[in-house]
Design a protein around this nucleic acid. Sequence first.
DNA 1: ATCATGCCCTAA
DNA 2: TGAGTTAGGGCATGAT
Length: 834
Amino acid sequence: MPEYSSQFDLAVISTKSNDSKIQLWGRCITGESIFLEIGGLEPYLEITYSTEQVPSDINVKLDKVKRRDDVVEVIELGEKWTEYGVKEMWRVMMKSSKHQDRSSFRKENINDWLFYNADFNHDKRLFYDLDIGTHIRINCQVIDDHRYPVDIYAKTDIHNLNNITPFQAPFVIASFDLETSILDNRILCAAVIIDQLDTSGQRKEIAKEYTFSGTEIEIMKGMTNLIRDKNPDIITGYNIDNFDIPRLKERLEYLTKENDTKTRSELFGWSRRAHENEWDMIPYRARNSKKWTVVGRCFIDAWWEARMVLRPKRETLSYVSQLLFPKRRDLRKLEIDTSKIDEEWEKRPDEVLEYCKRDALLPWEILDELRVIPKKESLAAVSKTSLDVVINGTTSNWIDSLVIRLADRNNVAVPMTKRYDRSDQIAGGYVHEVEPGVYPWVAVLDFKSMYPSIMINNNICRTTMIDDKNTQLPCNESPDGIKYLQKSQREGLVPKLLLDLMSQRDFHKKEMKNALSNGEKSKQIFHDGMQYAVKILMNSFYGVFASTFYRFTHKNIGSSITAWARYNITEIIRQLEEENQNVVYSDTDSIFVSVPMKITAPTKRPNTELGAKKFDEAKTELVKFGKELAERFTEDAAELEFETGLSAFFSHGAKKRYVGRMIWPKEEMIIRGYETRRSDSFTLLTNTMKSIFEYILDGNQESAIKEVITLIKEVKKGNANVEDLVISRSCKAFDRYANPDGLPFVQAAKKRRDDHGLEFTPGMKVAYVVTKSSGSNQVVEPWLVEDGGEPVDTYDIDYYSKRLAKALGRITEAFGWSENELLTGTRQTTLFSF
DNA sequence: ATCATGCCCTAA
DNA sequence: TGAGTTAGGGCATGAT
């Protein structure tokens, strides 16, 4: 018996299965990287007969399975719930954990058996069967063998892993950038930044910088040695998934022979493997996938993370950096002309290296600023899985992690993922019509976690759904006629998980408040991150269960959730309208109600003492009304909250587009849907719109219209600042469009690439200015200032004045000023005359 | 001129 | 390891 005398607390980065062993890579709380081989978890899948009743020749069939070469033994499990009723199940212990071996077993036995717990990678069983999460304590035997690029190489078995309270692991981060030749794609130089987090999720020290130049082989070997030496858990960079990693791979193919595994490993063996002949020593990606994988580490693309969090108008590294770090002057000047990089590298290599170093550091600074890594780790902890599942996996993988382990413990058979046919979509949320105009004093109420609450309160789950419409069992029946067993009969897996997540969230919120009052800043941030991760995960359940492919879903589930949602909200609207209350707007889980104000008060707090007093009285009235309404309509089935008090609400009459002056709980203008929120609008329009919303909410329509008319006059004269007219939209690969040449952003992307020698990455935003729109087609010029280019110096006067008039005219039309009247600046029948 | 379609982006 | 959902606005193009 080996002695497992060493003990480590660690966060799991990733796992893999290798024969009957599970391989696990992690980072210890004390800072070391660790690689573990875990024994004792044999691969298996589960089977039951495909007929309704137990077939008479069941023993013959079982023997046939037992005698197979790929089967070790067959274990009787007893009864489990399946979607076809309760059935006897057997566990088939298999020799191989390989996906293709399991798949051929299934193929060869498809006539006799149904398969369960059969279609996910074996290493996931470590989490499900041992019920462990991201942060674990292990007892192990440290092996004196330094082949693996980690600080600790150890062995253990499944009896030596235990859950511990989540913490923030001191992950090591590498961030890199390449400069490559435009002439021949060669790598000219590279820079790598190495840094580490501390256990409060902060950066530990000043990052260390490394640069590489010389021959391509020297550069690639140098980087690989550094990666294996400094041993980062996370490798980042800007747009690395689309550019840097594929370029390194390309150069590897160019520089080495396919069978020269030794050299290939020396050049690009970034994985945490020991042997140069492992097939996954080199980063790789699945067929048809954009996502790169490196065994034992994680790639995170700073571009993608910044895009998701910030939704920036433009997506170049320089634009995003200036957005996040506006005070940093060193980001403003772009010393290197990347469109002439070969020449620059020839003439002033030192400056190019400095530039490369800066572009290696920035992606890490972006991730740090957005707290990307602590957020991923919190989400991993809440979904009880490895870091890489959260980084590289899908929403359904997170849900799997919680659902499968619970199913296993409740004798629910875990079905394989299958695709449901759903040619017609399920119906979604209810959206109320909104009449154009300004509404003073509006209370906004909304249902707290609406879809999760509906799932909990009606016990909605695949395991509680009853097909028999005439069942006599006590059920909750959805408005669209689907029946779910009541909790007293059988508690659904999903409702149980959601309830548990709700109480977890309450716990972290409480801890967060405690930490705040004790002045424990990092503890407060930690619990805030955890409660937020719980929220994200809870809100993911509906989407996965309403999808057409998840293993535990059914088309009825999604449709009954939304049916209940529509019923709940429209029932409240109906009751309010019956009482002659004015429901101004409603979308899915929210209701906007006019407050029956007894006093007349200005909607903006005046400076005069008397006016201010009136305003405050009205605000008190608003809050009272909102709270009473929330209380009145809150039932055990659904908690309605008074979320926001508005002194004024405006919409021009389109759903999902409104503005409001929030005065409770805090003071702020809220804008939804309008161009102001859209990343494909231009600054002149969004700024003007924001400004006129301020006027409109204050009841000053005259100033709003004056501003628009003045602006359009100036734009017509050609006085607009071209930078404020830049439009930016994302652009896919050109062949993905039915008629690419008809699209202005495709034109811009092509000009960017062909006329200016710059990269175009499919999926990224392209910025442009419309310079001519005579005839049917627009003529556009790409905007390349963030790429080191010159600004466009002209714009199409008619196009921009018309677009402004159209977008702003929709709004001013509510006060009688149409698009054409804004363009001419005059009106026949005047409300105001200018 | 009007309508249908393709596309992007947002609210929830 | 292929994969969260629907509702909705608005721009541009192209057919009728």
